[in-house]
Design a protein around this nucleic acid. Sequence first.
DNA 1: GGCCAGGTGGAAA
DNA 2: TTTCCACATGGC
Length: 295
Amino acid sequence: MQSKKTGLQSFMTNMAPIRAPLFNLAATLDSGQVFHWMPDGDGGFRGLIGEMPVQVRQEGDQLWVTPGTEKLATRYFALDHDLEAIYRSFPLDPTMTRALAFCHGVRIIRQPLWECLATFLTSSMKQVSHIRQMSHAIRTRFGRPLPGWSPLAAYPSPERLAQATEAELRACGLGFRAKNLLATARAVHSGKVDLEALRHKDDGVVLSELCGLPGVGPKIANCVLLFAYERLSAFPIDVWIERVLRQSYFAHKRKATAGELRDFAARSFGPCGGYAQQYLFHHARSQPRGKRQRR
DNA sequence: GGCCAGGTGGAAA
DNA sequence: TTTCCACATGGC
C-alpha cells in the first residue's frame, strides 16, 4: 500500500524550486505594490505574471513555482536585487532602522507597464483593500479568463479598456476614476503615449510624459517609475509617507512644504530611495491603529 | 454617521 | 506661489 503524501509533499513534486535567500514573499505581496495575488488556501499564492498564471509558495530560502515559470518569477520578484547592498545605502536613523527590521526581505517587484499604470491610476484616495477590489472587478469584467483559475483573469489591455464605456468602469467601483482610466487607456492605445519607448528615457522625461495622462500626477507617476520602470530612486510621497516624514524627520518644522519634503527625500534616502520609501510605507501601514502616527 | 483612504486638477487667494 | 475644494466609494 502506498503511503499517502502530505499536502506539502504533493505540492512540491508538482512545483519547481528557485533559490530565494533574503526574500519575504507574503510581505512583498502584502506591501501595497500589487493587488491581485490571492492565497491558495495552502500557505501559497495564486496570481498572474503578465498573462501567465503562476502558483508560488515559500519554504525558507526556497521558492516553489509553477514549472516553466522559474525565469519569469525570478525576474518578477526581483530576486537579482542585491538587498544587502541596498540596505547598506539606507540612512541609519531610528525610523528607517525599525522599518528595515520589519520589512526584511520585501522586494520591489518588476510589474508590467500598463497593468501598473492602470492599477495605480485607480488608487487615488482609496485604501489598499479597495484598490484590490477594483483590480479584481476590472480583470473579471474585461480581462481574458483563465481556465481553472477563476476568479483570476489577466489584466485587460489598453485596447480592451479603450473600448469600454465610462458606465461600465464605474460599475467596477471606480467612481470619478472611471473617466481618467478610460481616457488614459485611449491615449495609450492610440499611441499618443508609448509606454515601452519610455523604458529608455531619463526619469524626468518618463515623469512628465506620465503626468500628461489624465488622472496621473506626481504620486502615481512615481509609483509607476518605481514599480514598473525599475527606477529604484523614485520616491512616491502619499499621505502615509508624508506623515512619516513630518513626524520623524520634520518634527522641528511641521509646516514644511511639499517641495521641501520632496527635496529632503531625494537628498536623504539615496540611490535606492524607492526601497526606503516602500519599507517606511509598509511599516507605517502595518502598525495597529492605536499606535499609528497621526497628524 | 463621520472620518479617512498609496491624489488630481482647476480655481481662488 | 500656496491653499482650497470637488470628485465616488467603501470600511471601520
